[in-house]
Design a protein around this nucleic acid. Structure first.
Length: 556
RNA sequence: GCGCCCGUAGCUCAAUGGACAGAGCAUCAGACUUCGGAUCUGAGGGUUGGGGGUUCGAGUCCCUCCGGGCGCGCCA
């Protein structure tokens, strides 16, 4: 890549200047090269001179000029300038952009990929909705972020496992309430005049499950001793919910490799093992009849209960065992993606990981901020128990998978997201996702028309690309050149939302090009060069939409 | 009270510590005999919540104040 080449040139200049005694510095700074915002400043710029001002106690401009003096000749560089503030601006010969097109055409689907992950294994755990209700629109945000982050990590060379933690512990109060609510719904269907308990679940979906249960298992399920009945309904409801969650997520384009059962940690003794190990390591102790995690030893505000005085382990005990289990399965790095109501749990979970002797720097928690739901401008308060949740299914039915995913990823994860269902539906034809998809469909259409007239996309390595001179052509090629960098940045910064923005920028650059540069019908060498550019744009759009899990339609 | 996140154009949001803070929507004014008008061109819009500090350079980092959201259980 051209950028790496410029970096190398600067490093060589620094080295030579240092050896010549003109830059008396202890060690060479890390050279950063970026495309300037203003195109008049050239193709690439470096701020390296400014970084040295303190050590050298000389004005940045002077340092920059010294560096330029020692810059080696290179056939790629056509002009080097020092700006008043000390930036060094590089203008390259136009053919550097032709290399970009060649690279895109040659790499195709793998354009934008990296190998920095070196095949290390990463576990990304996300959504992890409790099995007592459908996937909600809030879970959808976590689903989109987690899935695309996983795509990005794969793209930069990690081996990624997508994991869903099922909170199916049979002793959990929530699941008990949930099961009892289902029993009531079932009995109501049998004609009994009874009401939901006060802390029951009012959602209609429970009626559906009850009906399904009635049809498949008959009318005698609620007979017998209460505890056994509750357990029977709990087990059934949980399975039914899980199936529904899997289906909803699959329709959202999110497929998990592992659905990890919390209950399995309890039944297999892994929770006990973790607690014992914590005790052995001196990070768990008994007090007031309970077992406590000494999480304050790792920066938590207070110690946390691992085992209640009734002998039941808490959520954090299972979580300690769970993260231990993940490391034992051989993952080099763990990423948990949690909703905003869980940020208070980061400190204690990290404490548990550290207390068990695992490298806490390899365990990362990503918190996304709330999804505020609006209906026609009115804020909707959602409550699973009250039964007024807006589900991911609702959103999928209204706006479709592509728009939903794109919408969820248009904002940074740590910024709140307002989701107005009516607005999303009403504006669906103006949704930015269509702008990007349209660009792709338009390209495919152009290539079809070209094919009808006997054109094929020439090989970039053989075609003469010098006709690509228009400012919109150059802007488009530069934008395509940014893609690999953008992928790397989005992956390492855990910022999948950068991709939506980038995809819009590519679409924008393409539409501007389309408006000013005709492809079919120009002189042959112009048409051939532009076909290469158009096809390269198609590849990049397809790749970026692929990472987003959004379809790249050939027709719309 | 403590912790996390946020405060940028009328609205919703971008911006590895870099040059003149950018998009979309909305508003207004324009552009099609030709490859898809779900498009393009242009205009108006800003003391980046206030005040200090660090730095050659701050929307970005630090301190402080103001405002908003969320969380602080032997629930999950």
């Amino acid at each position: 890549m051209a950028k790496e080449r410029v970096i190398t040139l600067i490093e060589q200049a620094l080295q030579r200047a240092k050896e010549a005694g003109e830059l008396p510095i202890a060690q060479l700074p890390e050279v950063s090269v970026e495309p300037p915002r203003v195109k008049e400043f050239g193709d690439f710029a470096t701020n390296v001179a400014m970084l040295l001002t303190r050590e050298l106690k000389r004005p940045p401009r002077e340092i920059a000029e010294t560096i330029v003096k020692y810059l080696p000749e290179d056939r790629l560089v056509s002009r080097v300038e020092v700006a008043g503030n000390g930036f060094i601006n590089f203008t390259l010969h136009p053919h550097w952009l032709h290399d970009v097109l060649r690279e895109i055409q040659q790499k195709g689907e793998s354009y934008g990929k990296w190998e920095i992950g070196q095949g290390k294994r990463v576990n990304v755990e996300f959504v992890s909705a409790n099995p007592n209700g459908p996937i909600t629109v809030a879970h959808g945000r976590g689903g989109a972020i987690g899935d695309v982050l996983a795509n990005l990590l794969e793209a930069v060379g990690y081996r990624v496992t997508r994991e869903f933690y099922v909170n199916d512990a049979t002793n959990s109060l929530q699941m008990q309430h949930f099961a009892r609510s289902l029993v009531v719904r079932y009995r109501q269907l049998l004609g009994e005049d009874i009401e939901l308990p006060e802390d029951g679940y009012a959602g209609e979906y429970l009626v559906d499950i009850a009906r399904e249960l009635l049809e498949r298992e008959g009318t005698h399920l609620a007979e017998g001793e209460e505890e056994a009945v509750t357990e029977r309904f709990r087990a059934y409801a949980e399975q039914a919910m899980k199936r529904q969650q899997q289906q909803d997520l699959a329709d959202f384009g999110v497929v998990f490799d592992v659905w990890f059962s919390e209950n399995s940690l309890h039944t297999s003794g892994q929770v006990e093992d973790a607690i014992r190990e914590l005790k052995e390591r001196g990070y768990a102790y008994e007090h007031d009849g309970a077992v406590w995690l000494r999480s304050t030893a790792f920066g938590d505000d207070k110690d946390r209960v691992l085992v209640r005085n009734n002998g039941q382990p808490t959520y954090i005990a299972a979580d300690a065992a769970y993260h231990k289990n993940k490391f034992e399965r051989g993952f080099d790095h763990l990423i948990d993606i949690w909703g905003p109501d869980h940020h208070g749990y980061i400190a204690r979970t990290k404490a548990a990981v550290a207390a068990l002797g695992y490298p806490v720097e390899n365990f990362e928690v990503l918190i996304y901020q709330i999804v505020r739901l609006f209906k026609g401008g009115d804020l909707v308060r959602m409550s699973k128990r009250a039964g007024n949740v807006v589900t991911l299914r609702d959103v999928l039915d209204e706006v479709g998978k592509d728009a939903a995913r794109f919408f969820f990823l248009m904002r940074s994860h740590d910024s709140p997201l307002d989701f107005d269902l009516e607005l999303a539906k009403k504006e669906s034809s103006e949704n930015p996702v269509y702008y990007v998809q349209y660009a792709h469909a338009r390209i495919c259409s152009m290539l079809r028309v070209a094919a009808e007239q006997g054109w094929t996309v020439p090989s970039a390595s053989e075609a003469d690309l010098s006709p690509l001179q228009h400012e919109n052509e150059i802007a488009l090629m530069k934008k395509l050149d940014e893609f690999p960098e953008e992928v790397l940045e989005a992956a390492t910064e855990r910022a999948p939302h950068r991709l939506t923005r980038y995809s819009m920028e590519v679409a924008d650059a393409f539409h501007k090009f389309y408006d000013t540069c005709r492809v079919v019908g120009e002189e042959e060498h112009v048409t051939r060069a532009r076909l290469v550019l158009v096809d390269a744009t198609r590849i990049v759009l397809k790749n970026v939409l692929g990472l987003l899990g959004v379809s790249a339609p050939e027709r719309m």
